[in-house]
Computed example of a mutant assay.
Amino acid sequence: MAKIAVTGVTGNLGGMVSRLCKENGIKVRNLARNKEKAEKIGFSDVFKSNYDKSEDTIKSLEGIEVLFMVSGSENPNRVQQHKDFIDAAKISGVSHIIYLSFYNASKNSIFTLGRDHYATEEYIKENGFKYTFLRDNFYADFFVNLCREYGEIKGPAGNGKVSAVVRSDVSEVAAKILENPEKWENQTLNMTGPEEFTMEEIVKIVSKYFGKEIKYIDETVEEAYESRKIWKAKQWEYDSWVSTYTAIAQNEQSGISNDIKKVLGRKATSLTEYLEIL
């Protein structure tokens, strides 16, 4: 059995993947920036590891063959941090990186953060690693949370469609791949839901389950930037928030993939199924 490490275990997805591996009898090394926090919430075999090429990080990857890499926290230097971490993996002798990327990531992605994911994928390939890229669409969880918290979704998404995916499906796929990483070497898998919806359609479905009317407000790009000024943020953050919707408007986030079924042997969870288990 390959020696496996999982990053970001104190975060949502990394934590889910590590727990699922444990349930499935797969031994993993848990990597976290904050070792004490990871141990406090119940993880064992924790190594301190950052997205850099420090001594700690190189040491945390020694003896590891397969690395599950969640993307780092969003920040303007994220691509460089990813590259440093990938360099550390190379120094430590990691051979296969399973990277949590983004659906339709490209150099010119409308969703600004999609460009970071593309640059990371390219760097992994350039450095000769075996790779598996899990290209997540936006999470259905995110849209449902907006409805719950604000009673509305607003943004310049027009009538574009998104095949949003449920986060727990993605963690199950990652854990399944870690059971037999060799089978998935040098593949790109698209993580989408089993259906695609406009924002209008999403709020209709969620309204039904929440028993109250939730509206979709189709803003212009200018209105979207203006309405988000209620949160103090940097320009790159405003750009990423607004481009979430402009990417949907341009149908960059549409299209349905069968890859979740290919890995799990079952269909991806639908929005309705997700709402039923909330």
Results as ranks from 00 to 15, higher is better:
residue 6 V to S: 04
residue 8 G to Y: 01
residue 10 T to L: 11
residue 11 G to Y: 04
residue 11 G to E: 06
residue 12 N to M: 13
residue 12 N to Y: 15
residue 15 G to I: 03
residue 22 K to M: 06
residue 28 V to E: 02
residue 28 V to N: 02
residue 30 N to R: 03
residue 31 L to C: 09
residue 33 R to F: 01
residue 37 K to I: 01
residue 38 A to H: 06
residue 39 E to R: 02
residue 40 K to W: 13
residue 42 G to L: 10
residue 42 G to T: 08
residue 45 D to N: 14
residue 45 D to P: 04
residue 48 K to S: 02
residue 48 K to R: 09
residue 49 S to V: 02
residue 50 N to M: 11
residue 52 D to R: 05
residue 53 K to C: 10
residue 55 E to V: 14
residue 57 T to N: 01
residue 60 S to M: 05
residue 62 E to K: 12
residue 63 G to D: 07
residue 64 I to V: 15
residue 68 F to G: 03
residue 70 V to P: 03
residue 74 E to K: 07
residue 75 N to E: 09
residue 77 N to E: 11
residue 79 V to A: 07
residue 81 Q to I: 04
residue 82 H to D: 06
residue 90 K to A: 10
residue 94 V to M: 02
residue 98 I to Y: 01
residue 102 F to M: 04
residue 109 S to A: 06
residue 110 I to F: 06
residue 115 R to P: 03
residue 116 D to T: 03
residue 116 D to K: 00
residue 116 D to E: 08
residue 116 D to V: 00
residue 120 T to L: 03
residue 121 E to C: 11
residue 123 Y to D: 07
residue 123 Y to C: 10
residue 125 K to L: 04
residue 127 N to L: 15
residue 129 F to V: 08
residue 131 Y to H: 05
residue 131 Y to T: 11
residue 138 F to I: 13
residue 139 Y to F: 15
residue 139 Y to V: 11
residue 142 F to V: 13
residue 142 F to L: 13
residue 142 F to G: 09
residue 143 F to Y: 12
residue 144 V to S: 07
residue 144 V to L: 05
residue 145 N to Q: 15
residue 154 K to C: 12
residue 160 G to D: 08
residue 162 V to T: 14
residue 162 V to R: 02
residue 164 A to L: 14
residue 168 S to W: 15
residue 171 S to D: 08
residue 173 V to I: 06
residue 173 V to L: 05
residue 176 K to M: 14
residue 177 I to M: 11
residue 181 P to Y: 00
residue 183 K to M: 07
residue 183 K to T: 10
residue 185 E to F: 13
residue 185 E to M: 09
residue 189 L to Y: 10
residue 189 L to R: 08
residue 189 L to P: 00
residue 190 N to G: 00
residue 192 T to H: 00
residue 193 G to T: 10
residue 194 P to Q: 04
residue 197 F to N: 08
residue 198 T to E: 02
residue 200 E to T: 07
residue 201 E to G: 10
residue 203 V to E: 07
residue 204 K to F: 01
residue 206 V to T: 01
residue 207 S to T: 08
residue 208 K to S: 13
residue 209 Y to F: 13
residue 216 Y to V: 11
residue 217 I to G: 01
residue 217 I to A: 03
residue 218 D to V: 10
residue 223 E to Q: 13
residue 226 E to G: 01
residue 228 R to A: 04
residue 229 K to G: 07
residue 230 I to K: 15
residue 232 K to E: 10
residue 232 K to T: 11
residue 239 D to V: 12
residue 240 S to M: 13
residue 244 T to M: 15
residue 245 Y to C: 07
residue 248 I to D: 05
residue 249 A to C: 14
residue 252 E to Q: 07
residue 256 I to S: 05
residue 257 S to N: 08
residue 268 A to F: 06
residue 268 A to Q: 04
residue 270 S to W: 13
residue 271 L to I: 04
residue 271 L to A: 00
residue 276 E to P: 10
